[in-house]
Amino acid sequence: MEPIMQVEHVTRRFGDGETEVVAVRDISLEVTTGEVILIMGPSGSGKTTLLSMLGGLLQPSDGRIRIGDDELTELDESRLPDVRLQHIGFIFQDFNLLSALTCLDNVALVAQLSGISRKEARRRAKELLEQLGLGHRLNFLPEKLSGGEKQRVAIARALINQPDIILADEPTANLDSHHGHETMRLLRRIAKEENRSVIIVSHDQRIKDIADRIFWLEDGEFKNVVEMALDPVCGMSVDKVSAPAEAEVDGRTYYFCANGCRDEFLEAPEKFLVDKLPPVHKN
């Protein structure tokens, strides 16, 4: 499958001479459509710098970043806002909704920025919010919403221009366990059912469960890459390399948390080859 984002040997330095700090060092990455990538790492490892570069908010010192047909590293600064608007949806740790605008207007504004008429933007925003279960909160100000609701509005805002890539910065950090889980499931649904690539930067170990690949960033470099798979029987997330059991059915490999799950699966694979996640809207 053609990657939607290609990152080639990206390095970012700050300062020069003796004060030079290399925040991100020679990172390469390919992101394919529908993939959920989790980037983890300790504080100061370069996650924020990397995320900023992937989002077209910061230019690398070396290397190239391509989104679709746009080579971010070669674009003029003035073109970057359009690329962000059209290709990238942002989800922030603190939700970062505009406090003076209602849920509907927060979402519609982003569509309007891309040149869509106010009426059409509001229609799309309303439809999207209703699909995310916020139809009863359209005219509420952010301060009246729960954390989970705010994050869903933020997700709607990220989706309104139908971007290729969603960049999420600690999306579960300010949510309780229930809403954190809900947000994770939603992000995965968006990736899998709407064919959007989701790149998440987080410390939250729970997100491993929904990630297709996990990158461990340390000292500005990827130290470890783990490819994850969901056990189709129990739904548990397992590392493909160290999975206790695996099986091949119709040319596809499945990974299991235990032999018991594999045996159960092999008795009637068709019973488990249904996505257990609830359906999500389609635009």
Binding site: G55, L57, S78, P81, D82, V83, R84, L85, Q86, F90, F92, N96, L98, S99, V110, L113, S114, R157
Partner: peptide, 18 residues
Amino acid sequence: RKRQEYGVLKAIGAKNRN
């Protein structure tokens, strides 16, 4: 007071002229 919100708008794709 709204510096952070303007930053969000800029990150999302708003131009300076917006």
